[in-house]
């Protein structure tokens, strides 16, 4: 672990001091519990600290947005989660939310308004892009990724679902790396196989796992880094690289990790 300590204020802390932070960082279940994705959460918090953003998290007051329940057909459970979350969010008078999970992003942004939750919601890729544009994050000389081949795997819930295609790519460009596209990218990007609650069950009978199909495509670019911007994609692509026994040569990293590492955080 690094020597420096970082601040991770909660909304409850802030509220007790009578403060309302500029932005709520919605961590999500994967960001809170998944061993691999916790390091993405950490990386993003480090960036927020370094840039000096007035943020807070919900901590143990956060709960699943309900996305996997809704996509699995359980509308009742989804709405129970959503209504409870909205009560917490509205209770803290939250105006703006950033999250590193495209599924949380989609649900908070597009589906909570129907139930009385109206917030400005942005995905961390857009947020990082804004920091770069504002000069708050500047990777001097591109850092350790300069000249490396990176391919970006589009998350369906970011791309097709919400038309966020350019922000993640602009973040990668800031690394001064060589961005190589897969054959299927942007609007034609191939799913990692985990969306629509597939993350939580085995695939139906078929002749191939979707993540293997996608990993093969990513490896074919010759990239040494597969950049992702979604916890489910991260898991699926990491598993894919492992099953191809390429984990020594190819890393799957989130945009926040790339920026944090590039900044030496």
């Amino acid at each position: 672990m690094s020597e420096t300590t970082y601040n991770v204020p909660t909304m409850a802390n802030k509220a007790s001091k009578g403060e309302n932070p500029d932005i709520l960082f919605w961590v999500g279940c994967a960001g809170s519990f998944d061993e691999r994705y916790k390091s993405v959460t950490n990386a993003f918090v480090k960036i927020l600290n370094k840039v000096g953003i007035d943020f807070a998290v919900l901590g143990s007051e956060e709960a699943c947005t309900g996305d996997p329940a809704r996509r699995g057909g359980n509308e009742f459970l989804f709405q129970m989660q959503a209504v409870a979350n909205i009560q917490v969010l509205n209770g803290y008078n939250v105006k703006k939310i950033v999250t590193a999970c495209p599924h949380c992003f989609n649900t908070l942004k597009n589906e909570y308004p129907d139930l009385g939750g109206n917030y400005e919601v942005i995905h961390h890729s857009t947020f990082l892009q804004q920091l770069i544009n504002e000069g708050k994050v500047s990777l001097k000389g591109g850092g350790e990724f300069k000249g490396k081949k990176i391919t970006y795997h589009d998350s369906c819930y970011l791309g097709r679902a919400n038309n966020v295609y350019e922000a993640p790519r602009m973040v990668l460009e800031a690394l001064d790396a060589e961005l190589v596209e897969m054959k299927r990218c942007k609007t034609k990007g191939l799913c990692c196989g985990a969306g629509g609650a597939q993350m939580f069950k085995d695939a139906e009978p078929g002749n191939k796992e979707i993540n293997i199909e996608r990993t093969e495509e990513a490896l074919a670019t010759g990239a040494t880094i597969i950049a992702s911007a979604c916890p489910f994609c991260m898991t699926m692509m990491t598993d894919g690289v492992k099953s191809k026994e390429k984990e020594d040569k190819v890393k799957v990293l989130d945009l926040a990790e790339l920026i944090a590492q590039g900044e030496g955080l």
């Binding site: 961590v27 998290v57 901590g59 143990s60 699943c64």
Partner: peptide, 15 residues
């Protein structure tokens, strides 16, 4: 309150 079997009280342990 999470799709995996983790205690909700552990949710903030990542920090």
């Amino acid at each position: 309150f999470a799709p995996w079997k983790f205690a909700p009280t552990d949710r903030f342990n990542w920090a």
